[in-house]
Computed example of a mutant assay.
Amino acid sequence: MRAISQLADNEPFPPTGEALDYPNGLLAVGGDLSPRRLLEAYRHGIFPWYEEPQPVLWWTPDPRSVLLPGQLHISRSLRKTLRRNRFRLSVDLHFESVMRHCAQLRGDGLGTWIGDNMLAAYCDLHHIGHAHSVEVYNPAGELVGGLYGIAIGRAYFGESMFSLEADASKVALVGLVNILTRGGFELIDCQVESEHLNSLGAFNMPRLDFEQRLRDTIDVAHDPEIWRLPATCGELL
């Protein structure tokens, strides 16, 4: 079995081709969650996923689940939800709250991969303009859905989403795709395949192809003014 690299704080990542086949994509252990480290990781298609207080685990699975903004599948029922104009939207107003809701999703007593260190690290990325959230509110003004992720160049790396009411997270995704399409983004990294993401248009891409897509998009700047949405979801259609 191939040995896993143990990272010191300032040590670079090993080549992604050294990632394990099982567990799929495990590349390295250790290091920190500084903005420099995280941005370096995402630029190479690497992301952290672990449970605190264990050491940080870094992953680059093969294949990679991706969604191209122009290929988002909006079902008839979701279109009906959007037309009803029930939900209100915002961008980057409640980033930390979105992360905290995502952290509460498991509810099985087994903990969550979004611990205090992850929360602080991604809030730091949010403050420097790389991490973004989309928020969804019901008619009572309650935050009932949302998502967050990292934007570098014209690639968006989705991290997590939550939904407390039917279709709320899907509405957040439609809002995100609206933003990314206006910004000329070419892909959304969904990390690992799931039936839910596949139903929305995601598909698997070999890691080498995914990394080539990143090289083609990661240094192409996007307009920071794109991070806004209409007030209500009906305007997304």
Rank of each mutant, 00 (worst) to 15 (best):
P48H: 01
E18A: 13
P48R: 01
L72N: 04
G30T: 04
S75P: 06
E51Y: 11
R83Y: 09
H44Y: 05
R83G: 11
G109C: 13
N24P: 03
W59T: 00
A103I: 07
N85I: 07
R100K: 15
L105G: 10
R88N: 10
E96L: 12
P48Y: 01
I74D: 06
Y42F: 11
D108E: 14
T81P: 01
F87D: 03
I74Q: 06
L68Y: 13
T81E: 14
L57M: 12
R64S: 03
G31S: 07
N85L: 09
A19S: 13
R64M: 05
D92F: 05
I74N: 06
R36P: 00
S77E: 11
G45H: 01
S90A: 15
F87K: 03
L39G: 04
L33S: 08
H73F: 10
Q71L: 14
Y22F: 13
N24F: 08
V56G: 01
R84E: 15
L38W: 02
R100Q: 15
P48W: 00
E52R: 03
R86W: 06
G107N: 14
G30E: 01
K80S: 15
P53E: 10
D108S: 13
L82Y: 04
G17M: 08
I74C: 12
L39P: 01
R100C: 09
K80W: 06
N24K: 09
A103W: 04
D92C: 11
R83E: 12
S97T: 15
C102E: 05
S97D: 14
D92R: 05
A41K: 03
E52F: 02
G107S: 13
F47C: 06
R106Y: 09
H44M: 13
F47Q: 02
L93F: 07
P61S: 07
E51F: 11
P23H: 08
H44E: 12
W58V: 04
H73A: 12
W58A: 07
A19W: 00
G30M: 03
S75D: 10
W49L: 12
L57I: 03
R84I: 04
F95Q: 02
V66G: 02
N24V: 09
C102Q: 03
F95R: 00
R86D: 05
R84S: 15
V56T: 07
E96C: 10
C102A: 12
N85G: 15
A41Q: 03
R43N: 08
S34T: 15
H44C: 08
V56R: 01
L67N: 00
P35H: 09
P55A: 10
G70W: 07
R76D: 13
C102L: 10
